[in-house]
């Protein structure tokens, strides 16, 4: 039995006095794709932000690679971050620089690779997301879907051990979305990457999810495989898989 790569223990998150997530505990295992599901406003993004320590949990702890990151010193936390890639909902590319420079930032800051190899790595990562032609363009010159793919290329440029994606398929056409799923599967299967995704796309969930975490009104209703979810008898989950949306 593998050890969990992320352990969320009794996590409670609040915005002011408002409780957004309540007492969530879950173990996420390496080399699995875990999909976080739930209706709008159920706390999916907050859950992701708490796992990443972008928000500090009100109660509970989050262990990543076995260490509690909620109480970790800043330099230790930075070491953990180097093994993590994050694709934000809106891409979050730096608008003042071109795509090549956006991807070169993590490589320049966290490796001592020579520039000729660095350039090759960046071009490979852009080719993986089918964006080689956009290497010299600025984010403002790309469509929403292209920005999302460029942001994914930046998230995987350091070959992270854990990849977090906040709605990666939103705004993408079905073909690009399927290609993205294929890439995520490859990253998992070939490179043993652990992937945690927030998505509502049913087709995508069926293609890639090993496990799903179902959140509703700040509580975790279910954690398990897609088949288990369908047969869970939990009304909200069964309804989601029947209708395909919330």
């Amino acid at each position: 039995m593998k050890k969990p790569i992320i352990q969320v223990n009794n996590l409670t998150a609040k915005y002011g006095e408002k409780v957004v997530l309540s007492d969530i505990s879950v173990d996420i295992y390496p080399e699995e794709i875990t999909v976080i599901l739930g209706p709008s406003g159920c706390g999916k993004s907050t859950f992701l932000k708490n796992i990443l320590r972008l928000n500090q949990p009100a109660e509970g702890s989050v262990n990543v690679f076995g260490d509690n990151i909620t109480i970790m010193e800043e330099d230790e936390y930075e070491k953990v971050l180097r093994k993590i890639g994050v694709l934000f909902q809106n891409g979050a590319l730096l608008n003042s620089i071109d795509i090549f420079e956006n991807l070169s930032i993590p490589l320049e800051q966290h490796t001592s690779l020579p520039s000729e190899l660095m350039e090759k790595i960046i071009r490979i990562k852009l080719e993986l997301v089918n964006l080689s032609h956009a290497i010299n363009l600025k984010p403002s010159e790309l469509s929403g879907g292209m920005r999302k793919r460029a942001a994914l290329a930046r998230a995987i440029v350091l070959d992270p051990e854990i990849l977090f994606c906040d709605e990666p398929s939103a705004g993408l056409d079905p073909l690009t979305s399927a290609a993205l799923d294929e890439l995520i599967l490859n990253l998992k299967n070939q490179l043993k990457m652990t992937v945690i995704i927030v998505t509502h796309e049913l087709a995508s969930i069926h293609r890639i999810a090993d496990k799903i975490i179902f959140l509703d009104q700040g509580k975790m209703l279910f954690y398990g495989t897609v088949d288990e979810a369908k047969n869970s008898g939990i009304e909200e989950i069964v309804e989601f898989f029947r209708v395909g949306s919330f």
Binding site: R123, I124, N136, Q190, L191
Partner: peptide, 22 residues
């Protein structure tokens, strides 16, 4: 197999020419 698979994913053999900056 594992190493060859990684090479397959990240191979630069079919990389298109880098577009020139205008």
């Amino acid at each position: 197999d594992e190493v060859l698979n990684s090479i397959k994913i990240f191979s630069q053999r079919d990389l298109p020419e880098r577009p020139k900056r205008v």
